[in-house]
Design a protein around this nucleic acid. Structure first.
Lengths: 338, 338
DNA sequence: CTAGATCGTCGAAGCGTTTCAACACGCTAA
DNA sequence: TTAGCGTGTTGAAACGCTTCGACGATCTAG
């Protein structure tokens, strides 16, 4: 492999000149720059990442910690990851992938100066990783909200607004008895922030819209979904609007409704909270509040890069929810009000 | 951050002694080792990854190129990735994630010495990336088979054997008219190796088992699946056994069969080729040939590490398929033969 | 015409490791 | 007694880059 000295020799300049051509940190005359660039081209020169990191304390790599296992919906994770990786490239950075459970990896990559910054997904209310990254010298952005986001950068969908929006949509269409089929019980038990924020928005809006709202936890399995639907219809038989905030369960919820002879979009309005492509790949196109996973990933990178460049203060950004009406929802018993 | 020199000073030894304690490449007496380890502990010392990479030409990072976008099934990708990342950790390596379309990333990470080795997923018959990695100084393992695997390390499920196994299962249960609902047309058009290997196995076994086999390409969408099922039943109405090799379409294939009043597991036997968890999360538990994505990812890492350590020759490993019988298949018109 | 900026380039000192050659020491064998 | 050996440790030279201070040369203002 050619080194920067080889390039310098070939171009008849000093090592530092080549470096400055590469980094643009000092002005270089056009002819010199051209000579250097030609030499780089001819030798197929690539700077050695390790040497660069050593000299500059910059690796041009960011760490992404993602839940590669159970729990969160797989398509959502993939979209986050895709968003992070592609946006990182826009900033000339690569992505080192860490698994959620590899907590020691945090120390490894931060103390070992393997990365310039971190992005962590799937933050829980009382996440053990949060104190670790708060102590690290690298800036971090969390996707999701911990209990106390003080001094941390966070980004997420505004689930509270999403809850309100979903209820407002159904209430506006004349539904008076609505329900949420939500996250699995263990997610609720961990007080995961997005589930709680969703419910808060839901309940507040229900109160002010004058509708009732029943909440069912739901495992992301066929049987979990069946059970949730059956329990719901047994305990709240007047329900005509359902909000599903659980991508894994969604197809099975729809299947169970169909099995029971309930026509979604006619007898029952269903609003899903999920990525658009998931909403569109159900048995009927779902009215949905988009979970813009890829966008959130991109915003996370934007934020972490901003903190890397200038000394931006930490901030929390909650993305406004957008509801798109499709075939799964329709006016309810009281008719459209809006 | 403490450096190796700080540790040496604190322990009253030379820098190189600390290095040898860390690497174990030279014998160090027990008392000295203990002093050094105590100093490391006390100072919270972590070697600087860049400095290490520069001096040793080893980064302890491997690159993983994964299709983060359309096409291949998302759960499968995630499982590959999870397998690669967890196994890499067993070898004290981290994973740098590259997207499939970032072809220039190959040059960046190899020429820039950012990684020690590469793993590439979703290889196509005539993949433009293959010549690039063949020229790189880092060893590479491909998940999937290119046209000509000469001199390359590859690993994949033995799809040809899987095709045979699926037909043997159905034929053995007395089915005489079977069908494949397979990959999307564009995948077939690219002559993607796994699809072709599957069909080859299927056809060979059909011939020797004396059953007919009809093949339908199928988009991974609700409408694509509906269309495939309808066409199949129109052109081959005697079909009693279907092999589905398309996870995205699987739920919609089952839904369409149900809509047409065909009872899967009774009127129609269906064998899926997909990860076990996908097989289990359908409306009924599917008889399936497991696509052991996580295992394949792990094997890929094992292979690439072997090539990194010793100078192992390249090899191709095809994992034997395993069929698990569940509720979606049953004896056919001719009764069980086995 | 000169003092001072400005521009373009250079030399050299790091950055924090690994690793090679060398060496001191206590053994064993002759 | 000494030559030779293995063991444990050291000093110093890389590794390939960035960046700081310095220095001519050229331009500008007074």
């Amino acid at each position: 492999m050619a080194t920067i000295d080889d390039v310098a020799r070939a171009a008849g300049v000093s090592t530092s000149t080549v470096s400055y051509v590469l980094s643009g940190k000092r002005p270089i005359s056009a002819p010199t720059r051209a000579r250097v660039e030609r030499a780089i081209e001819k030798l197929g020169y690539r700077p050695h990442a390790g040497a660069r990191a050593l000299a500059s304390s910059r690796t041009n790599v960011i760490a992404l910690m993602a839940p590669l296992r159970v729990g969160v919906s797989v398509p959502v994770i993939m979209q986050f990851v895709a968003g992070v990786v592609t946006r990182a490239r826009d900033f000339d950075h690569d992505v080192l992938l860490l698994t959620q459970d590899d907590v020691s990896g945090l120390d490894r990559v931060t103390s070992g100066s393997m990365v310039d910054a971190l992005v962590m997904m799937d933050i829980e209310a009382d996440d053990p990783r949060v104190p670790l990254v708060a102590a690290a010298k690298q800036p971090t952005v969390l996707i999701g909200l911990p209990q106390d986001p003080e001094g941390l950068s966070c980004v997420d969908l505004d689930f509270e607004a999403a809850g309100r929006l979903a209820v407002r949509h159904l209430a506006g269409a004349g539904h008076t008895d609505v329900a949420l089929i939500g996250s699995p019980p263990e997610v609720l038990r961990r007080h995961t922030s997005y589930a709680e924020r969703m419910m808060r928005g839901l309940r507040n809006q229900a109160k002010s819209s004058g509708v009732t709202v029943k909440v069912e936890a739901c495992d992301s399995t066929p049987s979990g979904a069946t059970e949730a639907v059956d329990t719901l219809l047994a305990t709240a038989p007047d329900t005509t609007g359902i909000i599903v905030h659980n991508e894994g369960a969604l197809p099975h919820v729809l299947a169970r409704l169909a099995d029971r002879g309930i026509a979604v979009g006619t007898d029952m309005s269903v609003v899903a909270v999920c990525p658009t492509d998931v909403a569109l790949s159900q048995r009927i196109p779902m009215t949905s509040i988009d979970l813009p996973a890829e966008d959130i990933g991109k915003v996370a990178v934007d934020m972490v890069m901003a903190r890397l460049e200038g000394e931006q203060p930490s901030e929390t950004r909650l993305l406004a929810p957008v509801l798109t009406e499709r075939a799964s929802s329709a006016p309810g018993p009281a008719g459209a009000l809006g």
